[in-house]
Deep mutational scan, measured.
Amino acid sequence: EIRVRVEKDPELGFSISGGVGGRGNPFRPDDDGIFVTRVQPEGPASKLLQPGDKIIQANGYSFINIEHGQAVSLLKTFQNTVELIIVREV
């Protein structure tokens, strides 16, 4: 597990896919977790996150067994800083 802090400027600078009942993700199709799919170059998350990172927690909210829409809404709700716990396959 890796813990990262992303400062919104003005957005977080990454996209996610997956989630329960979602269209899945390109990295682990059998896993309904939330995965980072795109990281904006030079964006707030560019040095912190990589495509394929699985987000398991954001600001204390579990991202395990969460629906895609709910994950997106939560990330939009947070002000300024988001603390993520991620799992990265090496």
Rank of each mutant, 00 (worst) to 15 (best):
A71L: 01
L12Y: 09
I64L: 12
S46W: 10
I16L: 05
Y61C: 14
R38I: 15
R5L: 15
G33P: 02
F14R: 00
P26Q: 10
S46P: 03
L74V: 07
N59F: 01
V20K: 13
V87D: 13
L84C: 04
F63M: 09
G60W: 03
R3H: 08
A45N: 06
A58P: 01
P26C: 11
S17A: 12
K54A: 03
I64F: 07
G69V: 14
S15P: 00
I55L: 07
A58N: 02
L75K: 00
R5H: 10
D53F: 00
A58L: 02
R88L: 01
R38Q: 15
A45F: 00
L48R: 07
E83Q: 05
F78D: 06
S15C: 09
V72Q: 14
K47R: 09
E11V: 08
R5C: 12
N59C: 06
Q57S: 15
P26W: 08
N65Y: 05
E83K: 04
E11A: 10
F35Q: 03
L12G: 02
Q50H: 11
E1K: 15
N65T: 09
Y61K: 12
R28K: 15
R28A: 14
D9K: 14
Q57H: 09
Q79A: 12
G21S: 10
F35A: 00
E89A: 12
G52F: 05
R5V: 13
V82F: 05
I2E: 03
R88E: 04
D30T: 11
G52Y: 06
V20R: 11
K47A: 11
I86N: 03
F63Q: 01
G60R: 06
Q40N: 14
V87R: 13
F14N: 03
G52L: 04
H68W: 15
P10S: 06
E42A: 10
R23L: 11
F35S: 03
V39G: 00
S46N: 09
E89I: 11
I66L: 10
G24I: 14
K54Y: 03
V82R: 02
L49T: 03
G60K: 07
K8Q: 05
K54I: 04
E83M: 04
G13A: 04
L48S: 12
I34Y: 02
L74R: 08
D30C: 11
I86K: 03
L75A: 01
S17E: 05
K47N: 12
E7Y: 13
V39L: 05
S17H: 05
P41Q: 11
I56R: 05
T37H: 09
P10W: 07
I56V: 10
G24F: 07
I2S: 03
R38V: 11
I56G: 00
I56N: 09
K76H: 11
I64W: 11
V4E: 00
D32V: 13
I86F: 03
Q57G: 10
I66E: 02
G69D: 15
T81Q: 13
R38F: 14
V39K: 00
E7W: 09
K47T: 10
S17I: 08
G43D: 06
G19V: 04
S62M: 04
S73H: 14
T37P: 00
L49E: 04
L74A: 07
N25R: 07
N59L: 01
P44V: 05
F14G: 01
S17D: 09
R5F: 15
T37C: 11
G22I: 07
N65I: 01
D9R: 12
E1I: 11
N25V: 08
Q70C: 11
F27V: 08
L48Q: 08
S46K: 13
V36N: 04
R88I: 00
N59I: 01
I66Q: 03
Q57N: 14
E11F: 06
N59M: 04
D30F: 07
K8M: 12
N80A: 10
E83G: 02
P41W: 06
R3C: 12
L74F: 09
Q57R: 15
L75E: 00
F14H: 05
V90A: 15
R5Y: 08
F35L: 04
I64R: 12
V82L: 09
R23W: 11
I86M: 04
E7I: 15
P51D: 07
Q50C: 11
L75V: 02
P41F: 05
L12P: 05
L75R: 03
R88M: 02
E89F: 08
D32K: 15
I34A: 01
D30Q: 15
G18H: 04
E11R: 08
V6D: 01
P26S: 09
A58W: 02
I86P: 00
G60A: 08
F35N: 00
V39N: 00
G60Y: 04
F78R: 07
I66T: 04
F14Y: 02
E7D: 12
G22R: 10
F27P: 11
P10I: 04
D53K: 00
I55S: 00
V4R: 01
P51L: 09
F63R: 00
I34H: 00
E89W: 12
D9Y: 06
L74N: 04
G19M: 03
K8A: 13
R23Q: 08
D9W: 06
F27H: 10
I34N: 04
A71G: 04
E67G: 11
H68E: 14
V82A: 05
V20T: 14
A58Q: 00
Q50A: 10
F63W: 05
V72G: 06
Q57A: 11
P10V: 04
G33H: 06
S17C: 15
K8S: 09
I64Y: 10
R88G: 03
L74C: 06
